[in-house]
Amino acid sequence: MIETTNKLTELVKVIIAEEEAILDQLDVELRLCKATANAEGLKQFAEVFYFIRYDFPRLNFVVGERCGTNEFLWAGLAKNLIEELGGKNGPSHNQLYRDFLSSVGTKSEELLKEPLFAQQFNANWENFCRTASLEEALCAIAVYEIFDQPDYQLFLRVMQEAGVPEYGLRFFRVHAAAEHFEMFEDVVAWLQEQEGGKEAFAKGKDFVVQTQRKMWNGLMECLEKQCLTCPV
């Protein structure tokens, strides 16, 4: 058990390092600081990034439906959805993001327009969750949760630099400290011992890494071109 835990801990460290390397290569933090240095740029980020994070809870349902009656497989997804609702005390993560939108003076979420890169990001995720093997899809969700810490720690620093009020920062604080991969550790550890399990995890991870890199490129290009009306 201890050996398995140590292996998973090392696996998480490797994946975090891989995402941090992408963030460094693309110079995301500096570019995002520049893009959000004024009120309009900050509002644009809030409105555009809404479409990157809003669809994630639904993907848990998509993959969960494929698990059938096997609660061992869907347990992590269910726990993840409870966390999305804010756990026992709330508020939900969606509400925290609405607070962020409000804190920077954006329009209501019903009026936001989804840019093309975000459409592609969400379509790629949905397609993978529906058509990849169940094992690969579960692993992709688990790996995506590992990205929370490096991504949202960066976002938190940038949003603080931009002067976002405290109630607007709560969404980023929650995710910067998240350890949601723990909800999937049992399934991932089990898969690692199954025939083809390591390959399934590798395929799920590769999908997430590649898709995330495309997302960062699309997000930064959209912000730097000030394309609030990016093609839709």
Rank of each mutant, 00 (worst) to 15 (best):
N6L: 05
K7G: 11
I16T: 11
A17I: 12
E20N: 04
I22H: 07
D24A: 08
Q25P: 03
V28D: 05
T36L: 03
G41F: 03
Q44F: 06
Q44A: 11
A46W: 11
D55V: 06
N60C: 13
G64S: 15
T69S: 08
L81Y: 00
L85R: 04
K88I: 13
P91T: 12
S92L: 02
S92E: 02
Q95H: 14
R98T: 13
R98K: 09
D99P: 07
F100A: 14
S103V: 09
V104D: 02
V104S: 01
G105F: 06
S108D: 14
S108Y: 08
L111Q: 03
Q120L: 00
N122G: 09
W125S: 07
W125G: 12
F128S: 08
A132D: 13
Y144E: 11
D148L: 03
Q153S: 10
Q160K: 11
Q160P: 01
A162W: 02
E166C: 04
L169W: 06
F172I: 01
A176R: 00
A177P: 02
E182Y: 02
F184Y: 03
L191M: 15
G196W: 10
K198F: 03
E199H: 08
F201A: 04
K205R: 15
F207M: 13
V208N: 10
M215D: 15
W216A: 13
L223C: 04
C227R: 08
C227K: 04
V232R: 10
V232Q: 05
